[in-house]
Amino acid sequence: MISLIAALAVDRVIGMENAMPWNLPADLAWFKRNTLNKPVIMGRHTWESIGRPLPGRKNIILSSQPGTDDRVTWVKSVDEAIAACGDVPEIMVIGGGRVYEQFLPKAQKLYLTHIDAEVEGDTHFPDYEPDDWESVFSEFHDADAQNSHSYCFEILERR
């Protein structure tokens, strides 16, 4: 099963200049909980913004210009990325925008964090048809001392 995991502000903004323009430790914990011990696929820009392999996960970098870091697996196509994951129950696609666009048609599940923030962004989550998805989990949280904005975790499964 292919799943996408993303944090989205208003207007589906997911990033600005290779960074997330908010401070939500709870979302980072949600991300870790849902990706640990699963292969993660990301684009080169996302890889560069993280700066290191995510521990406890097979890191697969999709790029037309593969790098030389041998701590991760470099691939040039969506099919190659899927094959590099091996026989696993769930593959997690973690961004960025172009990689989400490439995998959305193949995805069966979306793990979304909806952030109540209007922020400037240069990267967006692809538009998706809500009628194609069923919400199977939703959990709202107010902003607090650690988390700069209110947010809602949601899991959607393709109908």
Rank of each mutant, 00 (worst) to 15 (best):
38 K>R: 12
147 N>Q: 05
8 L>V: 02
45 H>W: 03
91 I>A: 15
38 K>D: 10
103 F>S: 14
17 E>L: 02
7 A>L: 00
18 N>C: 07
78 V>T: 11
105 P>N: 09
84 A>D: 06
39 P>M: 12
132 D>Q: 09
64 S>P: 02
105 P>I: 06
77 S>D: 14
12 R>G: 01
144 D>Q: 05
34 N>V: 05
87 D>P: 12
125 F>V: 01
111 Y>C: 15
134 E>V: 11
126 P>A: 14
127 D>Y: 15
57 R>G: 00
124 H>P: 12
126 P>V: 12
123 T>S: 08
17 E>F: 01
116 D>R: 15
152 C>K: 14
19 A>L: 03
138 S>R: 14
67 G>K: 06
157 E>P: 02
47 W>H: 14
84 A>R: 05
140 F>I: 14
144 D>R: 03
56 G>Y: 10
55 P>H: 09
68 T>H: 13
79 D>I: 07
93 V>P: 02
123 T>K: 10
19 A>C: 12
29 A>M: 02
138 S>T: 11
8 L>T: 11
71 R>D: 10
8 L>H: 04
47 W>S: 10
140 F>M: 13
44 R>A: 11
4 L>C: 01
102 Q>E: 12
4 L>Y: 15
116 D>E: 14
56 G>V: 06
101 E>G: 12
18 N>L: 13
66 P>N: 09
61 I>W: 01
52 R>D: 09
124 H>E: 04
88 V>D: 13
130 P>S: 14
83 A>P: 11
153 F>S: 05
8 L>W: 04
94 I>V: 06
136 V>P: 10
91 I>K: 09
127 D>L: 13
60 I>Y: 15
49 S>P: 01
148 S>L: 00
62 L>N: 02
33 R>D: 11
91 I>T: 14
33 R>N: 09
102 Q>N: 14
103 F>V: 10
64 S>L: 12
48 E>R: 14
101 E>A: 07
127 D>M: 13
44 R>Y: 04
100 Y>Q: 01
80 E>N: 05
15 G>P: 01
147 N>T: 05
30 W>D: 07
56 G>W: 07
119 V>R: 15
105 P>A: 10
152 C>L: 12
25 P>K: 03
98 R>K: 06
153 F>E: 03
114 H>W: 12
78 V>M: 08
34 N>E: 07
